[in-house]
Design a protein around this nucleic acid. Sequence first.
DNA 1: GTGTTTGCAAAGTGTTTGCAATTTA
DNA 2: TAAATTGCAAACACTTTGCAAACAC
Lengths: 138, 138
Amino acid sequence: MDKVRPYSHALDRLRNAGLRPTRQRLALAKLLFDDHDRHITAEILHGEALDAKVRVSLATVYNTLHQFNEAGLLREIVVDSGRSYFDTNTSDHHHIFNEDSRELKDIDDGQIGLTGMPAVGTGQEISRIDVIVRVKNS
Amino acid sequence: MDKVRPYSHALDRLRNAGLRPTRQRLALAKLLFDDHDRHITAEILHGEALDAKVRVSLATVYNTLHQFNEAGLLREIVVDSGRSYFDTNTSDHHHIFNEDSRELKDIDDGQIGLTGMPAVGTGQEISRIDVIVRVKNS
DNA sequence: GTGTTTGCAAAGTGTTTGCAATTTA
DNA sequence: TAAATTGCAAACACTTTGCAAACAC
């Protein structure tokens, strides 16, 4: 029967990741993780922070997104040369990308499956397999 | 028993695409299509052109790559935010990307299969499904 | 000749960096 | 107070653009 406790939720995430819970990181974590399955760019998150009256620089947003990514709190998704997307859903799943609106969304789990295992060279390991369904408005 | 005729090969490609066979476009087409399954960036192609003593500006390389892409002679592949790759193999196939060397290669056809059809919203159509196997040196 | 293409240099976009000032533990 | 973090502005990598000169048909 736990009530949602956004503040300590974000705080715990940062603590577990070994990141100091600064004002900026707490605020960004709250914006990122209070809703599920967000796909966000640095500029958008920066805008949301400013809208929420959180003073934070764009440089810090970039730094924070990369720190969260390295800590496994986020997953960076490459779908668009020219901008980076970060997904708050870090579980194994695939994506659908609208090339017109540049909107990125998760694909329901099980909707798509992969068969066959690619051969990787020696001295190499698979870090991830991305499936991107690219759609456009018809 | 046709011998390879690189010049007219490139010329025919440009003609079929409705692109004027300028000196620059012919030279770039030759560099791109004389070998198979190339995965190239604008900077690399520009460098190869200069090595081959072809005078062409980087801006023209970018323009040409995009024109070839639109004409279906090339396929742009997004694997790396920050740079664009162009694949001379325009058939349906998937890719393996080495995140350390930033090298992009084709996956042998049939090596990987997809099951399931993603649901696309109304007013949308699938323009492509990309599978990217990301590997790193272990 | 007329419309297309090129090259240059400048501008643009998204991202990273260096470093002094601030904040955290 | 020692170490980590922040913000700013400058630097950065890659790409696009505007426009006059060169080229293709």
